[in-house]
Design a protein around this nucleic acid. Structure first.
Lengths: 152, 152
DNA sequence: CTTGTAGTTGAAGTCAACTTCAAGTCAAGT
DNA sequence: ACTTGACTTGAAGTTGACTTCAACTACAAG
């Protein structure tokens, strides 16, 4: 029987999709907070779920925990954040995604014109030239596939 | 004065853009090889530059070193790889990039429709729902920005 | 009150892809 | 021959975001 409307770490884990160990980690890092029972166990407010939803979304977009911490710090101090607050925070993600998509598209289109020649030249090929800004932006693709492959 | 047409690790580093430490690491991992002088210093064939160009390009696309190792293993044993060999290896990258672009586009379009409501619901929002395959594919965006930001 | 599930902690481990370090050796120009 | 810069090694460190571990404690149902 639930004492109040507070949630245990297991319940939050279940409902947020984060492992309990991740929740404890986030608490150490200051991303979420919880009260404690007299015995020292964590009890979460329901609002932590939205906060965790924000964290998950931000991670999906590609923000680091540091960036997420910074974003969360701009939330109003006293009151519970409103939808408008969350919307404001996520608005900047669009251009970020646009940039990522552009970088990948550039990379793909460059690849199209490179495949035929099989050159992979260190001097001219956008895929390999280490001084080429575009190629470096393209390097953003690194690590993406690891996660893309995870679903199976 | 160069003894033969072999390259020192410093020269290869300079011309490939990889740090000497990375070249040593790649050698330990079996991605590249080198002969040695009588004194034990590495001497590289010129062809290693193309191999390294391939490695850089593959990293830019997002392949792990394990995958690159596997790809390189399909190169012909005895002879020096031709352009056609390299082109064959890089051909499969296109669909990989297509998938990445699709995943990010899906994420962005989902974001568009989410921003207005500020919901970030754990139940319905594609950005946060941990059981949503699309959201998980979207998780591929993670780490991308870290690299996108590196150019400066 | 007993039992079993769920929770607690700090420290250490994991992963990938390298980099850094310390202590020493080699190669090449003068 | 000497000097100097480039090279050698294995081991350990780095980064981010967690997970795993061992040993122990709390809570709630019956």
């Amino acid at each position: 029987m639930r004492a109040t409307d507070l949630l245990t770490v297991g319940e939050v884990a279940q409902r947020s999709g984060f492992a309990p160990s991740a929740l404890r980690f986030y608490e150490r890092e200051g991303l979420v907070s919880a009260t404690r029972t007299s015995g020292g166990q964590r009890r979460y407010q329901r609002s932590v779920l939205r906060r965790l939803a924000f964290i998950r979304a931000a991670r999906n977009i590609g923000l680091s925990l540091d960036e997420i911490t910074a974003a969360l710090a701009t939330l109003p101090d006293g009151r519970t954040p409103t939808r408008a607050d969350w919307a404001r925070l996520s608005r900047s993600w669009r251009s970020r995604l646009d940039d990522q998509i552009k970088a990948l598209t550039r990379l793909r289109d460059g690849l199209e014109s490179c495949i035929g020649c099989g050159c992979l030249s260190l001097k001219v090929c956008a895929f390999t030239n280490p001084d080429d800004r575009a190629a470096r932006a393209g390097a953003g693709a690194a690590f993406l596939p690891r996660l893309l492959r995870e679903p199976d």
